[in-house]
């Protein structure tokens, strides 16, 4: 709508309206790398907080029929360092520690004695690719019951034979599709996929699915700067799907 006003009034109005826009200039802080590093890290923490809120503990990730699963040869091997840390499968045990009633060393046979779940689920990589694979193992929740984990604890930490390490929120760990996985495509995990035991959680991104598990710890506190190999370099800690 057109109005007619004196030049000096137009200038004054324009100036006043321009000043009202000043708060937007605060986004300019992102132009300074030292500040923006902290701001974007905070942005990821905010996203993680929102992700925790969006996570539904009983909502199942999509499962697929056998015909929709990619052939085993087309399921990528992914590792951050070496693909085979040469775990001695004969002597391997899982060390369980932290807020549990029965800490100690657990043999693979003890884990395999728990009810087995096989599922065809999507494995999503943070890079953007995804593959539907076939996984078998025991629910993390069953194992945590076996070791007498404090069900009120907040986190599950794992350490791996290749020095990889991860931590996950308890709600995701207890999700009914979250597995201590010892089988892929009906066969024992091969070395490059993380033998003898890895995490497999279809509600988490690939980098959360630690392989060659060595130690499992139930805890309420995460050490800052030691929450996960990639997370410590800037990936989202929640990493949830």
């Amino acid at each position: 709508m057109i109005t007619r006003l004196e030049d000096k009034d137009l200038k004054r109005q324009s100036r006043r309206q321009l000043l009202k826009l000043a708060p937007v200039a605060a986004l300019g802080a992102f132009a300074f790398p030292k500040v923006s590093d902290r701001l974007v890290a905070a942005g990821v923490r905010f996203s993680d907080w929102a992700s925790g809120g969006l996570f539904r503990s009983q909502h199942l990730a999509q499962t697929f029929s056998n015909s929709e699963v990619v052939p085993f040869e087309k399921f990528p091997y992914n590792g951050y360092d070496v693909l085979d840390p040469e775990v001695d499968l004969e002597k391997w045990t899982l060390t369980v520690e932290g807020d549990v009633r029965h800490p100690g060393e657990y043999k693979l046979a003890q884990i395999q004695a728990l009810p087995k779940l096989s599922q065809n689920t999507r494995h999503v990589c943070v890079e953007g690719w995804d593959v539907v694979g076939s996984f078998g193992g025991t629910r993390i929740s069953e194992f945590l019951t076996l070791v007498g984990a404090n069900s009120g604890a907040r986190f599950l930490e794992v350490e791996c034979a290749d020095d990889y390490y991860e931590s996950i929120d308890m709600a995701s760990a207890l999700h009914p599709q979250s597995l201590l996985c010892y089988e892929m495509y009906g066969q024992p995990l091969d070395r490059k996929h993380g033998a003898p035991l890895r995490l497999q959680m279809p509600t988490k991104l690939g980098y959360k699915q630690a392989k060659y598990l060595d130690t499992l710890r139930v805890t309420n506190v995460l050490k800052p700067g030691k929450t996960g190999y990639w997370e410590d370099q800037g990936y989202s800690w929640f990493g949830g799907l």
Partner: peptide, 20 residues
């Protein structure tokens, strides 16, 4: 006074959201 034709085209909410 010399009058100028002018129009308030973009309300504050539009300007802020445009730049953000």
């Amino acid at each position: 006074p010399v009058l100028v034709r002018a129009a308030y085209e973009h309300p504050l909410a539009i300007r802020i959201t445009h730049w953000v």
